[in-house]
Design a protein around this nucleic acid. Sequence first.
RNA 1: GCGGGUGUAGCUUAGUGGUAAAGCCCCGGCCUUCCAAGCCGGUGACGAGGGUUCAAUCCCCUUCACCCGCUCCA
Length: 493
Amino acid sequence: MAKQVKNEQMDKLSSLCKRRGFIFQSSEIYGGLASTWDFGPLGVELKRNVKNLWWQDLVVSREDVVGMDASILMHPKVWEASGHVENFHDPLIDCKNCKTRFRADKGVFYFKCSDCDLNFRVNNGFLEMKDEFKKHFGADLFAEEPDHYKNSDCPHCGGKGTVDAEKLACPKCGSADLSSARQFNLMFKTHFGASEDSASEVYLRPETAQGIFVNFDNVINTARIKLPFGIGQIGKAFRNEITTGNFIFRSREFEQMEMEYFVKPEDSQKWYEYWVNERFNWYKKLGVRAENLRLRPHEKEELAHYAKGCTDVEYKFPFGWSELEGIADRQTFDLDQHIKASGKKLRYFETETNTHIVPAVVESSAGVDRTILTVLADAYWEDAEHNRIVLRLNPKLAPIKVAILPLVNRDGMPDIAKNIFHDVKKHMAAFFDQGGSIGRRYRRQDEAGTPFGITVDSQTLEDGTVTLRDRDTLEQVRIPKDNVVKALKEKLE
RNA sequence: GCGGGUGUAGCUUAGUGGUAAAGCCCCGGCCUUCCAAGCCGGUGACGAGGGUUCAAUCCCCUUCACCCGCUCCA
């Protein structure tokens, strides 16, 4: 029952998005394309505002961060070095009996000792063996593949161990009625060059971060920056997700806002904490209600092997708490990988000590689309008292800042309003509407999230003042019509 | 990808083996002096492809999309 209510919330939100021109399904007239989305006239403004605020706060206003914009297509070796070619796929098997899906490389096999008859079973990554054996092999073995055990000694007698793969069985119900293993590579492939031969296969980037790492040397040689410093980037990324959904939350084409902050390795913990705090507050600054935000530090088992720490910023969506952004202390892993693969020296020369160092990196990786879904979900408000739906967006994010409305369609009011409109339009996104009753026009703007309304009425004809309406409180104040731009700008500060 | 559910106008619903109705929305006009009032007029739909049939929105098959779960992450 609770679930249904939550889905209703998402339905209402996506329906509003379509109705008002925020977000449409991609290729809709051809039946749509799974989990790809288009931003309409209001959506694109909202998106630009989100990105601009990020860029302003993380790049422009900071003396220690520069920006860049890498291409989506990159040399295939980038993805080999980054580990994406090797790790960014999942061989998965479905159990036809109980419908569980599990990873094929965590299948069932036996470790057998040829000398002492010891054997134990490894089942879907869970070692079914006694503690003493766990101690012998190490606790992290559960994620390894059978080959890992091949050359191990028997933990009991030290004899020679062999590994026998068992016919796979479902880890949950034990059934052997399984689908064949299916490789899901999460990277999109395409062909580079006009002829489609595999020699020129390239990937669409699955993250923007690598564009920063491979340009590390170029940036330090040109930007005259000193440690610690960051490189920020906003751009599209593509992942062939197995499962998508929840409106724009998980899509196959999405946009990231990533900032890689390079620091002295010994300072990484300090900066990691700094950025976790900084990024958490950024969402509050966007106007997202604090009670709907939380930080979730990753458990040790959850961390990638090279990461020292990782914390998610989560938002309480109608479908549950979900990740908005990840902040990670990635140590020197990324640069090391590219140093190894490219043979280039990606390093920083520290003049104080006269030494070369490979900096550690603290990464902030946020999703543009998820941020948009967050601010929309957080702003959605059904005002029962006034029978209206309102998007209480932060004015800085609102696609349209002000609606200019003549109260009625005569006595020259439309002309006066139109003049104000042309004036305001030079400074901010504004909307002019003279059709229908005033109440109906206000309601429309409430749904679009427009924070302010300027109305020309009969008093305007007498004393040159107009009313300024506040979206959330419905309060109106009179201001001289020549002060409209100034008053609005003050409100938007 | 697997399982379950859903698909008629922008939205919410009706209906039928003989090409479809309504309310709200939207557009134009009238009227209207502050929060979806009223009047007149108008645009607009059977997700797509194939099959059965004289005839398919309806029956059958396939496919696509969306929702829920498995899974994963920005």
